[in-house]
Design a protein around this nucleic acid. Structure first.
Length: 811
RNA sequence: GGGCGAGUGGCGGAACUGGCAGACGCGCUGGACUCAAAAUCCAGUGAUGGCGACAUCGUGAGGGUUCAACUCCCUCCUCGCCCACCA
């Protein structure tokens, strides 16, 4: 008897698969229906694969292998989200070019992935940092620019004075630079944006047609943040009106002041009229220095300054109210100005209390204990003190007031979104250069498509100097204007790495195409993605950006669908044994390499899948890994129980007891359904039950053992291949058909019916499947135990019979 | 503060559409094998009471609907994740 030796057989089959890439390759010529199963491609960090990767990748691998076996033409690719900050920071520290460290990491990731036995089509591997790839990232920029969906404007960026660099949001931790621990300030710089807000409406509406976790859909909805309301003009001078946005037009009679953000143009426009310019100026300056985080800090008391000398007129009451400047009003939302109704808005209430401003109640609370002295009443209600609108319900009032505004041309119904345009420029080295050229004469010009890619040049020094490191390479900077052929300068910024990952799933359909980001025919063949598995940390950004790119392509007829990922699932987080997040600083990180080295990939795969439902968060417990280990060892030795027979007349059904045969078919059914529903934990447990029962038999048939191997193969591919070969098969198990169950065998002949008295289980009886209520009732009442509880049959008041399940006597 | 999700044995978890709560696995206890240990195999394992058959209780807490509730409804508590001054 050979012992199960995972190391040996895993190496053997990994080599075999590497030599037979067609096994896992998507077939361009096949007429079979396609299935595109995608993992979120990883950033190849120096830390290597973590257990969360293994979880998601194993799940999609099981699904892909299963899809192939049921006869689908499967596209299951892998690639690298290779641009990004960590590689650049590493370069600053060590001087090693990011390209070098990144490729070293990619090599390591590839090795790790292959050692897990994942069935990727490596012929389609992509690397976002390769010129062949980022040529098309740049093409997307030009595409969006041409359609008016990319533009340039001044914007605030995080700026670290000590590092002299712009920082990405992820590099700012609590308003402090993660590298030097100094304060981060806000600086206005010209930046490139993508006009994602153009698609806000579709991005909300189309969520209804995709199979995504509800939580992810609501998170996107909230992020886009649609609110319906109205903009209203408050006259300040004859020439200048202050426009405010509100969702609570019904409270406008309670407006006792207005507030503008420190960036609001009113300050500039009415400067000569302002009586306290110094005070105002000081406040604006202070606000500018603050980071977004400081400005949005919750507990912080609201501050502000009245702009003296100007007043705003409420169009409904013709009352003049003071105007304040305060940083609790955001310049980037709505109109950057609000009408303050302290009685019915918590923030306004707080501000009014602090600066002793008037609080006027215009919505009555039904709660007798409520007093506006203690808090704002923010719910809808019935209007009071509101002129001719008094007595109306909030909703009705909003409608009528909006109509009045529109009639008088003093405002209009407006929809606003929290979603902002996507700032994509980074003053960074390790990213795709933005393919734009600035000419003093002609302004901004696109790099002609034939000149793509704009190659990311080598530089000697990655250290931040206040502008992109690309600026140090003068060969790169100085170029000619595509329009006038005069001297011109290249854009020095690179693109946010999220741009690279917003379209990579298209590239897998046609990864080597030199003329297009992907050929139309190939896109039609493979896209959209049928199943997308990845972490929930990408709930908003990556998943939203990818949808935006897809919608832009669809709008301009490059593709004929408008959602990239038909079905999406997130793998849950795996936390450490101590219940905390795995992190290097806590020293509780589990290295999957080590586990795979010690136990083998099949056991690790089974273990992670058996831990619990894919989407739940789970905690790691190395102790339990012996479960899957024992299971595979038992599967392995079970093969010595196979009835060896040269006598063909000795039918296999004779060897396999009837019950076991039924169980075998039930298991096929269960495993099949569970894989379809991504319920891998219960699929494994049902296979364990089968193996437990098989072990009790003195002998098992070759057929049933083969079925077991097939069922197990997507989960534990190495051992499955080995067993298959041991059974005498010459070709890979993954070329076999997925087993089918016999519906007749799945149904029991006898069934157990639970007998309840007054809802409590008192006995069980075994009856034939087709037994009706009368038969079940009679059998049940004959039982001694039941007679004990029902001495007199006439006392039965009611009988509930659930076919196939139970009978309940109510006495 | 808002949104989403979750609370089931010592632990991870299972339970269809309201129908035997605790499948499967870990751990633990006892036994077999062994000079011994590991591994393996067999039996047991929610709590309480009882030698026992059995009985009672039991799915975060409290209430409700129902013949029947982990599952549905109401109130509350705890934990996790995401977003957060969005007018």
């Amino acid at each position: 008897m050979k012992k199960y030796n995972p190391k040996l057989i895993e190496r053997k089959w990994q080599e075999y698969w590497a030599k037979n890439p067609k096994l896992y390759a998507a077939d361009e010529k096949s007429k079979k229906s396609k299935f595109y199963c995608l993992d979120m491609f990883p950033y190849p960090s120096g830390d290597g694969l973590h257990v969360g990767h293994v979880e998601g990748y194993t799940a999609s691998d099981i699904y892909s292998r299963y899809q192939r076996m049921i006869g689908k033409n499967v596209l299951h690719p892998m690639g690298w989200d290779a641009f990004g900050l960590p590689a650049e920071n590493f370069a600053i520290k060590t001087g090693e070019h990011p390209d070098k460290s990144t490729h070293r990491n990619i090599k390591n990731f590839t090795k790790q992935i292959n050692s897990l036995g994942l069935s990727y089509d490596w012929s389609r591997e992509i690397d976002t940092s390769s010129p062949e790839y980022y040529k098309w990232t740049q093409w997307f920029f030009l595409f969006l620019y041409e359609k008016g969906l990319a533009y340039r404007k001044k914007a605030k960026v995080n700026w670290c004075e000590s590092c002299k660099t712009v920082l990405a949001n992820e590099q700012v931790e609590d308003g402090i630079c993660e590298r030097c621990k100094n304060e981060v300030i806000q600086k206005d710089l010209e930046q490139w944006f993508f006009r994602i807000t153009d698609f806000a409406e579709d991005l909300i509406d189309d969520l209804d047609k995709i199979d995504w976790p509800e939580s992810t859909k609501t998170a996107q909805k909230n992020w886009i943040g649609k609110s319906e309301g109205a903009t209203i003009k408050f006259e300040v001078t004859k020439e200048y009106s202050l426009e405010v946005f509100t969702t609570r037009l019904d409270t406008i009679f309670g407006c006792t002041y207005c507030v503008v953000s420190p960036e609001h143009p009113l300050i500039e426009n009415l400067r000569p009229k302002i009586e306290n310019p110094k005070e105002v100026e000081k406040y604006v300056k202070l606000a500018k220095k603050k980071t977004d985080l400081e400005r949005t800090e919750l507990q912080k008391e609201k501050t502000g300054v009245e702009i003296k000398g100007v007043k705003a007129t409420n169009p409904f009451t013709n009352e003049e109210v003071p105007i304040f400047i305060a940083d609790y009003v955001l310049s980037t939302y709505g109109t950057g100005a609000v009408m303050a109704v302290p009685a019915h808005d918590e923030r306004d209430w707080e501000f009014a209390k602090r600066y002793k401003l008037k609080i006027k109640e215009v919505i009555k609370s039904l709660d007798k204990k409520y007093s506006v002295k203690n808090e704002a009443y923010i719910n809808d209600g019935v209007l009071a003190n509101s002129g001719k609108y008094s007595g109306l319900a909030s909703e009705k009032a909003r409608e009528e007031m909006a109509m009045w505004l529109e009639k008088k041309n003093l405002g209009k119904r407006t929809i606003t979104y929290k979603l902002r345009d996507w700032l994509i420029s980074r003053q960074r080295y390790w990213g795709a250069p933005i393919p734009m050229i600035h000419c003093d004469k002609c302004g901004w010009q696109m790099v002609p498509e034939k000149d793509l890619p704009v190659i990311l040049p080598k530089v000697k020094d990655y250290r931040p100097k206040g502008t992109s490191p690309l600026g140090t390479n003068l060969n790169f900077v100085n170029t000619t204007c595509p329009k006038c052929k005069g001297a011109a300068k290249r854009e020095l910024d690179t693109m946010d790495t999220f741009v690279c990952s917003s379209w990579y799933f298209f590239r897998f359909a046609d990864p080597k195409n030199k003329n297009e980001f992907a050929g139309k025919g190939k896109i039609k063949k493979w896209l959209p993605v049928d199943l997308y598995i990845g972490g929930a940390e990408h709930t908003v950004l990556h998943l939203l950006y990818s949808r935006f790119f897809t919608k832009a392509l669809n709008k301009y007829k490059y593709i004929n669908f408008d959602e990239p990922f038909v079905k999406l699932r997130h793998q849950g987080m795996i936390v450490a044994e101590d219940g905390r997040k795995m992190s290097k600083s806590l020293g509780n990180v589990i290295n999957p390499d080590k586990i795979a080295g010690q136990y083998g990939a099949d056991i690790l795969r089974l273990f992670e899948m058996f831990m619990g439902p894919l989407e739940d968060s789970k905690s790691w417990n190395t102790k339990s890994i012996v479960g899957p280990k024992r299971f595979l060892e038992r599967v392995w030795s079970l093969r010595y129980k196979i009835k060896k027979t040269s006598d063909k007349s000795n039918a296999k059904s004779k060897i396999l007891s009837y019950n076991l045969k039924g169980l075998l078919h039930k298991t096929i059914k269960k495993v099949t359904e569970d894989i379809e529903n991504l319920h891998f934990n219960t699929a494994i447990s049902s296979m364990m039950i089968l193996v437990n029962e098989m072990e009790k038999e003195p002998q098992i048939s070759n057929d049933s053992y083969q079925t077991l191997a097939l069922l197990l193969s997507p989960f534990a591919p190495h051992i499955a291949e080995e067993l298959w070969a041991e059974l005498g098969h010459k070709r890979s198990i993954f070329l076999e058909k997925w087993p089918k169950f016999d519906p007749k065998l799945v149904v029991e002949k006898e069934m157990v019916i639970v007998v309840q008295v007054n809802g409590k289980v008192r006995d069980q009886i075994s009856v034939s499947v087709d037994a009706g209520e009368r038969e079940v009732k009679e059998t049940a009442l004959e039982q001694e135990k039941i007679k004990k509880y029902i001495p007199n049959i006439d006392n039965i008041r009611k009988i509930i019979f659930v076919p196939g399940r139970l009978i309940n006597f109510v006495v």
